[in-house]
């Protein structure tokens, strides 16, 4: 059964490219346009991995990670921040919140797939 990965990003074009990349590799992809939508979708149906943007309206990426980590079912799922942000302070914040890794946009498909493969094992 295909692993289910959620991509949370307020940019439709980024969601589209993440979805395109992951679907080509055989993953099942769920999209959310912001943190709140992502949280609701995960609560309804758990995912195997979360790829989230940092700056999103409503609930931002860091908050989303904190909320997701509160769910015992999601305590150990890989969470990758996919963002234009590259500040060390933000990365530390993301790491403290429970992020597994950080990818600075723009990403290349083989790069994203290598990360996904690595963290999903």
């Amino acid at each position: 059964m295909a692993k289910r990965i959620m991509t949370a990003d307020d940019s439709a074009s980024v969601r589209q490219m993440v979805g395109f990349t992951l679907k080509q590799a055989g993953y099942s992809v769920v999209e959310a346009a912001d943190g709140r939508e992502a949280l609701d979708a995960i609560a309804a149906s758990p995912v195997d991995m979360l790829i989230t943007d940092l700056n999103m309206p409503g609930l931002d990426g860091i908050e989303l990670i904190r909320e997701v980590r509160k769910d015992p079912q999601c305590r150990f799922i890989p969470i990758i921040m996919l963002t234009t942000e590259s500040q060390e302070g933000k990365k530390k914040e993301g790491k403290s919140a429970g992020a597994t890794g950080w990818i600075v946009k723009p990403f290349k498909p083989d790069q994203l797939l290598a990360v996904v493969k690595k963290v999903l094992g």
Partner: peptide, 10 residues
Amino acid sequence: DELGDNVELF
């Protein structure tokens, strides 16, 4: 490093 300069895994 193999993943690229824009990738960091914690």
